[in-house]
């Protein structure tokens, strides 16, 4: 079975979405929490130096948001391409 046009497009839409999600995943943790931590520590969030906050709090909150965003967006894409369950 070669993928029909819509199956290929569905997969492309999925891959594009998850690449964007992975960019955010990388930026908040490896970017803000590690590579740019010294720069961001010049700013603060309440009593937290910002870079420190991303490394120990912020990246975790972002990860949660990211997964639920992906779930919501994927459910829409599933319906759009008529491959959803039930």
């Amino acid at each position: 079975m070669q993928p029909t046009g819509s199956a290929a497009q569905y997969w492309k839409a999925n891959v594009r979405l998850l690449l964007w999600c992975l960019v955010v995943w990388f930026v908040v943790s490896f970017g803000f929490g590690i590579l740019l931590v010294d720069v961001l520590n010049n700013f603060s969030l309440g009593g937290y130096p910002l870079g420190f906050w991303f490394a120990q709090q912020g990246s975790i909150y972002t990860f949660i948001g990211l997964i639920f965003f992906y779930v919501w967006k994927m459910n829409k894409i599933d319906k759009e391409f008529d491959v959803h369950e039930d």
């Binding site: 999600c21 992975l22 995943w25 929490g33 990246s59 975790i60 990860f63 990211l66 997964i67």
Partner: peptide, 29 residues
């Protein structure tokens, strides 16, 4: 570990949670 490592303890915090993003996006479904 975090108490004695301070900022660097973040490696464990990010590492052991960030893996769930990979699971949800790349493997689980």
């Amino acid at each position: 570990l975090i108490a004695f490592m301070g900022y660097s303890g973040g490696a464990f915090l990010m590492g052991w949670t960030g893996g769930y993003v990979l699971l949800a996006l790349l493997l689980a479904p």
